[in-house]
Design a protein around this nucleic acid. Structure first.
Lengths: 241, 241
DNA sequence: AAAATGATAAGTGTCTACAGTTATGGAAAA
DNA sequence: TTTTCCATAACTGTAGACACTTATCATTTT
């Protein structure tokens, strides 16, 4: 077989959290991470530093830096004799990730209920309205973005930088699943209903209620996703060998 | 001032989780991490790659790899114009870390209650007994090790690799605080009493009870530590400038 | 045809060199 | 003496080279 691995260019916007124009190492990190979480590099594929370096027009050094960081963050799995492969996620990995998210995000909601200032609620309500409008217009492609923005606003209210970072990391790990729920119009409606209730509880500083609502929100999402996978409506990354 | 930064050698054993003899990059990672969490490199000190490289007898490349990973994991804070400084922890960082730990570790206990096999309880009970003997003999220097081993055995029962890794990371971040609680004989006794109750609940598969016990266990630890810091009995890293 | 062998290619880990940038310190100017 | 300015030193980021290890594949051997 010819050496013709092509790494496709940007499909749709991936949330780059730290977009201060960075050095090559960090740029490489974000780009490669995108390719992985989107499945553009299939699970099980070995990472070849020189290949990536060439395809990005830079030297191996910054690529290497990026690859090792991705290894440390769990997106790549080290091989016994050096190098990495793209990690694949089995159903139990996905369940695990949803469950930990349910713990962390519900805790963030708990903190948000206690710590938010009143003015900070309005932007969240606006996101909910916007989401609703997109639903009513059947404009489904906006939903993923609005959903992400809603959650990011929400977590910020927890005032816990560490917690937020952990949540983002977990979300990125299952980035490729993010649209499954919202593609079902019924689930999308249910989701926004949840959001309303969550904001309601937070606004009234009912921390325990908010916590419980978020936990159930995420666990319902988990059940739906797992079911879709089991029914074969969604394919998760398979090892390419 | 002369260039004479000396990085002291190993004081007491730091738990190296992956001690398969690694490449220089990973060795450097572990070594530098130790220096940081033990405060051998003071908070606020800028990391100088060539300095570390020389002191470890290797080139800058593997050191650089290690330093960047430590940056990604939060042990080092990036400087606006390149390079890193050792991050310092304020009281609120410490509170934050304890709180997230309380969430994650209590969840691990919840899972452990549901997922453990019966034979796995005995080793935990033995650790508790050993801890008790050390207490009775006033052999306090063993307590930190036994405590760590107990908790590691416990988390393993959760069968959730991701969760365990997150817990370890958080524990490492406040490694330098680990002895404060156990240095108080009263708190150490209380701690082992907690451990007994926790194992009891887990053995009976009372998941919710175990969860609650662990949460309170950790939050009590937090209160104690914060108080010691406030009273000035313990000094947390200060920026060296 | 299957298995063993060895040359070659592929790939990581490590080192060194160098460019560009920021900090330092001392001499010149006020 | 204090401030300004410039040369120099100190570092990081990036590239490229090389050594060593592992995989590949054609050729020989059985």
């Amino acid at each position: 077989m010819e050496k013709q691995e092509i790494y496709p260019k940007r499909l749709d916007p991936f949330p780059i959290r730290s977009l201060k124009k960075e050095n090559l190492g960090n740029q490489a990190f974000e780009q490669i991470k995108q390719m992985i979480v989107r499945g553009e590099i299939p699970a099980g594929k070995r990472i070849i530093e020189s290949e990536l370096a060439e395809s990005m027009g830079i030297s191996r050094t910054p690529v290497r830096e990026a690859v090792h960081k991705l290894g440390a963050e769990g997106f790549l799995k080290p091989l016994p004799k050096g190098g990495y492969v793209v990690r694949g996620l089995g159903i139990s990995d996905i369940e695990e990730t949803f469950e930990i998210r349910s713990i962390l995000e519900s805790f963030a909601a708990f903190l948000a209920a206690n710590r938010h200032r009143h003015e900070e609620i309005l932007p969240l309500e606006e996101k909910i309205e916007e989401f609703q409008r997109s639903l009513d217009n059947n404009d489904l492609k906006e939903l993923a973005r609005l959903n992400t923005e809603f959650h990011e606003l929400l977590y910020a209210l927890s005032r816990s930088q560490r917690l937020i970072k952990m949540i983002y990391n977990l979300r990125d790990e299952i980035y490729f699943l993010r649209k499954i729920i919202l593609n079902s119009i019924d689930m999308a409606r249910l989701s926004n209903k949840d959001h309303r209730e969550i904001i309601n509880a937070i606004e009234k500083r009912q921390a325990k209620t908010a916590e419980m609502l978020v936990r159930d929100h995420i666990l319902r999402g988990k059940e739906f996703v797992i079911n879709e996978i089991r029914k074969g409506n969604v394919s998760i990354n398979h090892h390419s060998f």
